[in-house]
């Protein structure tokens, strides 16, 4: 039977509680992984490993957290995503909410795209595929 969104959220929350040593109450859908939950870059790899195990899925490198766009000068210029870059990152992250990012696509604000909701959306789409 397919997992409900609520079940997916609970699993993601438990994963983040283990990976980041945070309290379950801190893991809300809108919490950002780095800003609110204190994730560091290496934690992202840990989160990927744990999600793979928890949901019995395979997460190809760069699919959940795209990491190859920032070094491309066509996509990022003067610390901001270019229109082409913005198109690419949206294509790469259909699971993220860009409503705030669109107005000011500063690379320093990219971590704000990685929320708990982003993870839940990604897993939901992955399980449905």
């Amino acid at each position: 039977m397919a997992m409900s969104r609520e079940e997916i959220f609970r699993n993601v929350r438990d994963t983040l509680v283990d990976a980041l040593a945070v309290e379950p109450e801190e893991v809300t859908e809108d919490a950002t992984l780095t800003g609110d939950l204190g994730a560091e870059s290496i934690d992202f790899l840990d989160i990927v490993f744990r999600l793979e195990k928890s949901f019995s899925i395979k997460i190809p490198r760069g699919e959940l957290f795209p990491d190859d766009l920032l070094n491309n000068p066509d996509y990022v210029s003067n610390g901001k995503f270019t229109p082409a870059g913005l198109r690419e990152i949206k294509k790469a992250m259909p699971h993220a909410d860009f409503s705030n990012f669109d107005a000011d696509p500063d690379v320093n604000k990219m971590p704000e795209l990685f929320t708990v909701k982003t993870l839940v959306n990604y897993i939901e789409a992955k399980l449905a595929a």
């Binding site: 790899l45 840990d46 990927v48 490993f49 793979e52 195990k53 490198r61």
Partner: peptide, 10 residues
């Protein structure tokens, strides 16, 4: 070894 991938291992 629990997990081994291109990126690393647990």
């Amino acid at each position: 070894i629990e997990t081994l991938s291109d990126a690393g291992a647990q």
